[in-house]
Write a protein that binds this DNA or RNA. Structure first.
Lengths: 204, 204
DNA sequence: TGACTTTGCGAACGATCGTTCTATTAAGTG
DNA sequence: CACTTAATAGAACGATCGTTCGCAAAGTCA
């Protein structure tokens, strides 16, 4: 690995932390340069533009997410254990030291949801992938006989996705110490419902 | 109403829209002044500082939320109808024209979750109030006999809160046309579970 | 109408932003 | 070691940021 790649990696690590706290738009070339003991232009040269820096940060985050959440979970046994592992790993993800401001995808989502461009496209793609991973894990659990056969796996993926965001908000904004137990309870309800015989869900 | 209050209200309306799209930090005095056909300093004088402007925007948003979501729902019959009304009204809230960038509380939550200060305090208070309103509506539904007596109303409030955020993300970031139906399905599952006899939620 | 207060404008400030250029130093290679 | 390339520094750019100040215009009320 050449020296350029090494400093680039160092910069990206700091940028990831910064983006987690101040958002992708809040990233400051000057601020990063100061923290990296570099000149603005020297740091800038590694990316060519702020947009490229943001894209690089997103790519770095995706890489780490796959490495820390998805890949380990895929080593768990197919079915409910793997599905549970995805949940557990996500809880850990939200507390990683390299994103002290919380899940960077969540921060980016709110920032980019009405700002078209490559960054938004990449983020949307990553979130679609994540929802697909969840739905796929649920589908496998159906195949393994752990979950009921008429389960709507995409719906389950959505509800787990939503619950994770609720947890994040309760933990990071409200500083509620019950955040994790709330999330766990909700998750058990999800899994329990996925296992049980279907019951009619009707409006009154 | 004096002229000052009138222009201040006009400014706040635009600021609310801007904050919904670019966030509270993304608010620009100069940009707002241009859109309001005013000078920067003239607009600035109405608030005294950017922090005060942000606080005013938050206060305005809270006022509208109470007016558009909570107050109408409180006119519905106590119990499940009122609880459902809170859900329906929230769906409408997320699509209000005056916040074209989506729910401003969600945007502010991600921005402020690790930035201590009056703005954060006010946001946290508003979200606590909202969770309390939800939990209280559920408690009333228990008293009315609509929901089961051993229901954890705070847990239900959390899960509805989380589901709303999931909906928002699916609708605004992913542009998924199934967002609303996903949210409705999840909500029906919540209500159904709140009504049914309790079942054990256990890990395997 | 007159006196008085509120409201708004215009110019300027220092700071920071992303970006560009040129020059210099360091690293990699034969 | 010399030579090429990659990496970084430094200075400057125009733009925009939030904020301050003094003064003119408009609104308010007797």
């Amino acid at each position: 690995m050449g020296k350029g790649e090494k400093t680039r990696a160092t910069i990206l690590q700091m940028a990831l932390a910064d983006a987690s706290e101040r958002g992708l738009e809040g990233l400051s070339i000057g601020g990063l340069a100061e923290r990296a003991h570099m000149s603005k232009s020297g740091l800038f040269a590694h990316f060519g533009s702020k947009d490229e820096l943001q894209l690089a940060v997103l790519a770095e985050a995706v890489e780490r997410f796959v490495e820390l959440v998805i890949a380990p979970a895929l080593k768990e046994p197919r079915g409910e254990p793997r599905f549970r592992a995805l949940f557990e790993r996500w809880l850990l993800w939200a507390r990683q030291d390299f994103q002290p401001g919380g899940c960077i995808f969540l921060a980016a989502a709110v920032e980019l949801d009405d700002r078209p461009g490559p960054a938004r496209d990449r983020l949307v793609a990553s979130q679609r992938d994540w929802l697909d991973v969840l739905a796929n894990a649920a589908r496998i659990a159906v195949e393994e006989g752990h979950f009921r056969r008429d389960l709507d796996v995409a719906q389950l993926a959505f509800e787990m996705y939503a619950m994770a965001q609720g947890f994040h908000q309760l933990e990071r904004l409200m500083r509620d110490p019950r955040a994790e137990s709330r999330a766990r309870t909700a998750f058990e309800r999800l899994v329990c419902d996925a296992r049980a015989k279907p019951r009619a869900h009707r409006a009154p």
